[in-house]
């Protein structure tokens, strides 16, 4: 009985959402709603993990166009290996200011780096890359509550955004991003940065910064992206401050990645084809000791049954140098197989 109550508590929101859409008055036309998302089944084996895992996961993203100016977006995700919980990941209001500008208010992604511009189900790799996974807990990327102004140019190919965010750990962040597809033929160049003030310890805050430069190309078949990061690790910085007795001490990290894929199309009509994916990445967690670094490699293949359905395999070694000799640990290496349907 108790578990039933707990389950009902966890699924009330999606049920409410679906029901309210069904029961909405005729004035709320179906065209006002758009749904994105995916359903996937994933098998993964991670180096040194006790057991391989198989699980299913799904995401629903709903956009409701209230009128010509206002739009609401929310996103829900559930994953079977995380229990019965449904995560309420994103909720924001978008106000259009003309054809090229909009303001977003609510919980949303900070637009730092190329990878964050894509939903996870639209990436050529199954998971986000190691460098993004590494900097995400530092709050440099990922979601926060804030206000974002976005300009998407229709004519000049110059886009930019700025945003201000805060969270419930007394962290304040300012983010800026600028990109242009006009400077270099068929290549989009982008620069983004995040400045944060994080209240990490009693009475001590750590100011951090992270910058990203990115170049990418994306057409119907060929995708490549090269990007580099440099920034401050707030947690490692706080430890260094404690050790050195100075609030000015900082730990800088640096890294980059290159990813490329090509879609070999078998059939023009149903989008059947195969897409090999290659990735290399490099991360130095502390530039003061650059002999300790992690090398990320990935060889993958996506087989498309049609535009929406794909079977994916990623072999993903992670090699971490210990900085003392020529030995690398393989911690974090994984192999992942996934069957995904997205819409």
């Amino acid at each position: 009985m108790k578990s039933m109550r707990s389950l009902s508590r966890r699924i009330w929101f999606p049920l409410l959402l679906v029901t309210s859409i069904q029961l909405c008055p005729p004035s709320l036309a179906q065209d006002d709603f758009s749904f994105d998302g995916y359903v996937a089944t994933t098998a993964t084996t991670v180096y040194k993990a006790l057991h391989p895992e198989i699980f299913y996961h799904a995401k629903v993203e709903v956009q409701y166009k209230v009128n010509k100016m206002m739009e609401a977006q929310l996103e829900l995700k559930g994953q079977s290996n995380e229990g019965e919980r449904i995560r309420f990941r994103e909720a924001n209001i978008r106000v259009k200011l003309g054809k090229e500008d909009k303001i977003k208010v609510g919980n949303m992604k900070k637009l730092v780096g190329e990878e964050e511009m894509y939903s996870e189900e639209d990436l050529v790799t199954i998971d986000r890359t190691y460098i993004y996974t590494y900097i995400s807990p530092m709050n440099h990327v990922g979601r926060d509550i804030g206000v974002q102004y976005v300009h998407e140019s229709k004519e000049s190919d110059l886009d930019y955004s700025i945003g201000a965010y805060m969270n419930n750990s007394r962290t304040f962040a300012a983010v800026g991003r600028i990109s242009s597809a006009a400077l270099l033929s068929s290549t989009t160049l982008a620069a983004s940065a995040v400045i944060q003030n994080q209240q990490l310890d009693e009475g001590t805050s750590v100011a951090t910064v992270l910058g990203n430069l990115s170049a990418s190309h994306n057409d119907k078949a060929f995708y490549w992206n090269v990007e580099g990061f440099a920034g401050i690790d707030p947690f490692a910085s706080r430890f260094r401050q404690l050790e050195e007795g100075s609030t000015k001490a900082r730990v800088w990290l640096a890294g980059g990645k290159a990813v490329g894929s090509y879609f070999f199309r078998f059939d023009d009509e149903d989008h059947r084809g195969i897409e090999p994916v290659f990735l290399t990445g490099y991360l130095v967690p502390d530039t003061r000791n650059s002999k300790v670094y992690t090398l990320e490699l990935l060889v993958g293949v996506n087989y498309y049954f049609d535009k929406h359905t794909r079977l994916r395999l990623n072999i993903h070694p992670l090699l971490t140098a210990n900085g003392v000799n020529n030995e690398f640990s393989q911690v974090g290496s994984s192999a992942i197989l996934e069957f995904q349907l997205r819409w």
Binding site: R128, Y132, T133, S136, P137, G142, N167, N168
Partner: peptide, 13 residues
Amino acid sequence: AEAQQTLNANRNL
């Protein structure tokens, strides 16, 4: 990474 970020971003909740 997402769960850890959520945990870090909600220290007071």
